[in-house]
Design a protein around this nucleic acid. Sequence first.
DNA 1: TAGGTATTTATTTTT
DNA 2: TAAATACCTA
Length: 737
Amino acid sequence: MDTQHPLLASLNPKQQQAVGADERNMLVLAGAGSGKTRVLVHRIAYLLQHEQLSPFSILAVTFTNKAAAEMRGRIEQLIGSSTRAMWIGTFHGLAHRLLRAHYLEVGLPQSFQILDSDDQLRMVKRIIKDMNLDEKRWPPKQAMWYINAKKDEGLRPHHIDGYDLTEQTLKAIYDAYQVACDRAGLVDFAELLLRAYELLRNNRFVREHYQRRFRHILVDEFQDTNAIQYAWIKLLSGVGVPDVDPADRNYVTIVGDDDQSIYGWRGARVENIQQFIKDYDDVLTIRLEQNYRSTDVILRAANQVIANNNDRLGKELWTEADGGELIDLYTAFNELDEARYIAGQIERWHEHGNALQDVAILYRSNAQSRVLEEAMLHARIPYRIYGGLRFFDRQEVKDALAYLRLISNRDDDAAFERAHNTPARGIGNTTLQKIRDHARNEQISLWQSAKQLIQDKVLNGRASNAVQAFLDLITGLEDETSEYSLGRQTDTVIKRSGLMAMYESEKGEKAQTRVENLKELVSACDNFDSFDDHEEDLPPLQAFLAHAALESGETQADQHQDAVQMMTLHSAKGLEFPLVFMTGVEEGMFPSQQSMDEAGRLEEERRLAYVGMTRAMQKLVITYAEQRRVYGQDMLHRASRFIGEMPSDALNPIRMGRVARSSENSQPAMGRFHSGASHETFQQTGFSLGQRVRHVKFGEGTVLNYEGSGPQSRIQVNFDEVGAKWLVVAYARLERC
DNA sequence: TAGGTATTTATTTTT
DNA sequence: TAAATACCTA
């Protein structure tokens, strides 16, 4: 290997090995912070420059649009020319592209639309109602989950033999749902993948075309692939396809980290990594273990935690930098104390001249963000929460898109359901139900059904007029705006449909943001360039609608402001921050209660802990609360087992909020939480502050604090053996010493 | 059909 | 606890 090649010179030996390898199948096990994207990007550049490959022969697949965009950008930067000829995108984006190009072969109308999860749920709900099934017994969410799970496994209704009633019914719902989608020209996310897979499997001509084209297929985050994605890659690479000459197979490079597999619950199969080694010839495995992100202390702790998992492919992160600050471990009284401590620490960090945007607060579940948010608000620390409602998921935006979808495809029943009476135009439930029933009987779309009912004079005069007016509105809008630019078209649609007027007439701050979002949608249309989306063959409106469904639109709150980043551990994957707070690290929270029943799930939680810890560059702070309000009930919590799995010499335990108080007005720990309770109430319990008590399990301790009154009152005791605990007086059976 | 009340339920998320 | 949803009434 020519290590003097300019593309290799800046890489470490393992990275060089991966980037400069001959054309072959490859597995790159890339640990957190080991320069994974760098390797991927350099590898592609190397193939182009050194192996003289045509950019047309490269297919690079990611999971998120963000990752795809980043890859594209970095390759362009590296090779100094356009990446237009390469297929770089998400699984869903690429599948979509295939379906658009081959809509005839897969039996879709040219104007097919993508159904997002919200639309899909509505659709499933509708089906269940139409089938006269009890929604209690057959929750739409679960039916949807079932459908998606089956599709992710590559199964159609006829593949399923429903032995018991449950499976039979779910299968029937799946079947009816699919019929409805097909009729309306609607494709859900899982369907994109499944249809694209079936296209390649059933159509030899199409498959061979792409097989000939993509000599190199590179897949990022391979541990997150599901069954259908794996099968899709296999087809494209010609592996396991009967009549493909082994010499005609394509090279596949997969990059992933089994230790960062945290999406098993949504169908991801880590096993695909091992399966890859079995299915593909002569796979070169390279481990990237040198970490360029975190301190040695953090890596040591993370390594030791993840070592508790079984069946790992094996990997240990190391760094050239040694030392680093110890990991602070703060034991809070409760979640309020935890939040206050974090706020205090962030204030100190900020006072030392550090940026707030370099700080991340991570939590296991979204519900935990509230208390943390309040503490930030209280301390006047600006923050930004990841993962709220995305732009294209907003109600008003979806309303507007429904009109655009109907203009583009009249048979889009989901759009019809949404638009027909928003704003109210006198098409009530009764009328709509007639339209639905007729549509179902005649196997036609709602639009066609509505037309027929008017023609056959089935509807009464008023209803008929209302429906006709709606049909005319859509047809008129299409005629009027067909020559308009996308922005002007959308602007006209929003105004003429009455949507804008409807939201403008509503009062309150909420309505105002809705109006603003509608305006924002118009400028999104103005700025939209289908060229950027590699959908240049599509009519602009179609391309935009696909864009809206596939690119949720970043949750962007003032990105320019210097703010603390708050997010779940899951959404932190792939990110890094100089200072990271990992919060709520308690048994029952993290690992979550639900994950403690099934064996495999606990290991996934541990990987989540590993992901969380390895986000930190300079300093990691782990916090947990001994008492926490969960679903309105106070729970006593123990420290997470993951804390016990860390090397104790990497931890700096902080108890009783001593550090927290350094930045607050130094109120004594005692009495901080009992402002509401009177002393008499407390005395009624028979205990007083500072008194020595004995507990059956925890042994002897000193009464520190109390809270509440009557049978609900709680008492905090600092036990000699096990530290401070909150106990419900009524149940604790404390004895005076 | 809006709005009020009772009831239920409670990870993690991208596309 | 609180949010979402279902159910019901004016």
